[in-house]
Design a protein around this nucleic acid. Structure first.
Lengths: 227, 227
DNA sequence: TCGATCACTGACCAATCGGTTAGCCTCCGT
DNA sequence: ACGGAGGCTAACCGATTGGTCAGTGATCGA
């Protein structure tokens, strides 16, 4: 119900990224598999379930994909590039450093929710990271995610707008980590009455940016020097 | 290899928490199930695998636990109380507000690594949160986690040491979120050469606390050339 | 128009799944 | 010494799993 808040920012634009090389039959299967794998995980989902969801026979699934695992890898590959494309499109606006970070954080979070299935798939892989090939995919996606934001931060560090005694990568970790954590737990957090921001990603993002930029320490109080 | 860094802080103390009411046979099965479920998830693990790991027959597993799902719930219940106990024991030391937050963050992170299997189980549940009963368990554990740290933060807010225009729950979210994210991705982050802190939780925690307290913005006005 | 290729299907397969049953063995109170 | 209870097992069950195979029908270049 309250999920409507998290829905698409831009409804649907005709994407040119859909590969025409893949038959529509295979596309249906991929889409069904993506949804189910994202919801339930690899081993909870049977080929039968995927076939049913795609409206085809089980044998047809194996006609397009050699094994269940290769289907999963194809889904993951799709998800990975989809996410990478989204990251590449991220812009941080052109306001002040503070505004740009805030803008970036909000856009990043919106991406996670817009592509919830993709995010879930990657999150799932992140959690075990034992498989060789899939690990590389997730690793690359996360790396792009990192590099994208690290570059922005470094720019501001060089300009002297951000502190230089903190690793840019550390700042990126905090931002991405918090956003992913919020994505993955907002439904649970939702059930804690105290957390106003659980239902309101805008509010969450605003406060996160505030903390990130200015810290939680009260600077007005005459603070005895730390350490 | 580098995992040794994350190992137990205090090797092993004779815990009184082990329930003597449960037979050792059932305990073995529980332990095996906990390990396997944490590593691979619910549906990837067969009762056969658990029985083999525990060194008993499959039928014996069903002798102690009615169904696979009830075994899983027992494992989750165990994990939940174990984590709750750990949270209850958390102290934030008795230094300055900054020191206490840093201390708490470090201890919290250490807990996650010390009880890695438990953490993984809870993280897994957090990710789907569809099951009724298990959802409640995870929700409670996370709630305790939150309340524990929120109280500390509120204390400092009332004392005027922390800003009061930020929700305490939001600060707690950042801290817990970052720690969980670090726990769950440090092995992936590890493969990014730039991230020095990926292998060094102490360093990570220090920087996180620094950001959390003081923010990343460069405030030129303040001199107090410390750090 | 032919024949080859293609997407697609129902029927089938061995293996494994969660779960049951009958019975063995050991311990323990009487 | 005995008998019941409980920990434990091998053998078994129907259902489902990932995967195969032979065949059907439509499409399309020659």
């Amino acid at each position: 119900m309250s999920d409507i808040i998290f829905s698409q920012s831009s409804p649907d634009k005709p994407k040119a990224t859909t590969k025409p090389s893949i038959s529509s039959g295979a596309q249906n299967i991929l889409a069904a598999a993506e949804e189910l794998f994202a919801q339930q995980g690899y081993s909870s989902i049977s080929i039968n379930a995927i076939a049913k969801q795609a409206g085809v026979s089980k044998a047809n699934v194996f006609h397009h994909f050699e094994t269940k695992e290769m289907l999963y890898m194809a889904v993951l590959q799709n998800a990975s590039t989809e996410m990478s494309d989204l990251i590449a499109e991220l812009d941080s606006g052109n306001g002040s450093a503070s505004q740009q970070i805030g803008h970036y954080a909000r856009q990043h979070l919106q991406n996670l929710f817009d592509k919830a299935r993709v995010t879930q798939l990657i999150l799932r892989e992140l959690q075990q990271g034992d498989k060789d090939e899939s690990f590389q995919l997730v690793r690359n996606t996360l790396n792009k995610n990192f590099t994208s934001i690290v570059n922005i931060i470094k720019k501001f560090q060089e300009r002297g707008e951000f502190r230089q005694d903190i690793e840019a990568a550390m700042i990126a970790t905090v931002l991405i980590g918090c956003n992913l954590f919020y994505f993955q737990t907002h439904s649970v957090l939702d059930s804690f009455p105290e957390l106003a921001f659980a239902k309101d990603p805008d509010n969450y993002c605003k406060q996160l940016t505030d903390i990130l930029l200015r810290g939680i320490e009260n600077k007005n109080a005459e603070d005895r020097g730390s350490s």
